[in-house]
Simulated assay, not measured.
Amino acid sequence: MSSDSASQETVCSQSLPLDEFLTFKLMALANALQMQVTRHYIAPVTSVGLVEWRLMGLLQQHGESHAGALARISLIDKAQISRSLQPLIERQWVQRRVDPQHARRHLLSLTSQGLSHFNCVLAQARPFQAALLNALTRQERESLNQIMAKLMQAAEAIDAQASQQSADSKPNSSLAIEP
C-alpha cells in the first residue's frame, strides 16, 4: 500500500470505538487545559470563571459587541453568555447600553476596570500558553493550525448538510394536503 492510499484510508463509522471519537479526545484535552488555566491563572488573580474571562477577551479583542455576535464568534450558547455576563455587569467590568440601531439589543463593552482585570489575567496566562505552544515545533504548530482549520470546515459542511437534510425531510407547509 502506498503512503498516498494509506493516508486516504477512511474510518468506518460502524465500528469506530467511542474512545476514538475526535470530539471526546478534543473535549478531554480542552477540559484538562481549561482546568489548569482556571486553577493556576484565573482563580488566583480574579473571581471570574473561564467563560466570563473568555467573554472579556472577546470584548477586548473585538470591541463593543452584542450577545448574539459574541455567541457566533465564540460558539458559546447565547443563554450561557447572558448568564455569564450578568456578574461582569454587576462588578462593573462590562458595560451594557441599548443599541441605538436596534432597541431590543444591548451593546456590551469592557469598562476600564474590566480591562485592567482582564490584562492582569492575560499577563499570567501568556507564559502558560507559550509553554504549550513551545511543546510543539514550528512545523507541528503550523500543521495543528491547518488540521484545526480543516476540521472546522468539515464540521461546518457536515452541519450544513444535516440542516439541509432536516429541511428536506419536513413537510412543505405551503402544499395543500388533501384528506
Rank of each mutant, 00 (worst) to 15 (best):
S2N: 15
S3G: 04
S5W: 12
A6G: 11
S7M: 06
S7R: 11
Q8D: 06
Q8G: 06
E9M: 15
T10S: 12
S15Y: 13
P17D: 05
L18Q: 08
E20A: 13
T23C: 08
T23D: 15
K25Q: 13
N31P: 03
N31C: 15
N31T: 14
N31Q: 13
M35H: 13
M35C: 12
Q36D: 12
V37Y: 07
T38G: 06
Y41W: 04
A43D: 09
P44C: 08
P44T: 05
V45P: 02
V45F: 03
V45M: 12
T46C: 09
T46Y: 11
S47A: 10
L50Y: 06
V51F: 02
L55I: 03
M56K: 01
G63L: 15
H66W: 05
A67V: 01
A69R: 10
L70Y: 00
A71R: 01
A71K: 01
I73D: 00
I73M: 01
S74G: 04
D77V: 00
A79T: 03
Q80A: 08
I81P: 01
S84E: 00
Q86L: 04
E90C: 10
R91T: 06
V94S: 00
V94D: 00
R96Y: 02
R96H: 03
R97Q: 13
R97I: 14
H102C: 12
H102Q: 15
A103Y: 09
A103D: 10
R104A: 10
R104Q: 15
R105H: 08
H106P: 06
H106I: 03
H106L: 05
L107G: 10
S109P: 08
L110V: 14
T111G: 11
S112K: 12
Q113Y: 04
G114S: 10
L115E: 12
S116L: 13
H117A: 12
F118N: 03
N119H: 11
C120I: 07
C120P: 03
V121Q: 03
A123F: 01
Q124M: 08
A125I: 02
A125W: 04
F128G: 03
A130V: 14
A130H: 07
A130M: 11
A131I: 06
L133H: 05
L133E: 03
N134Y: 07
N134K: 14
A135Y: 07
A135D: 09
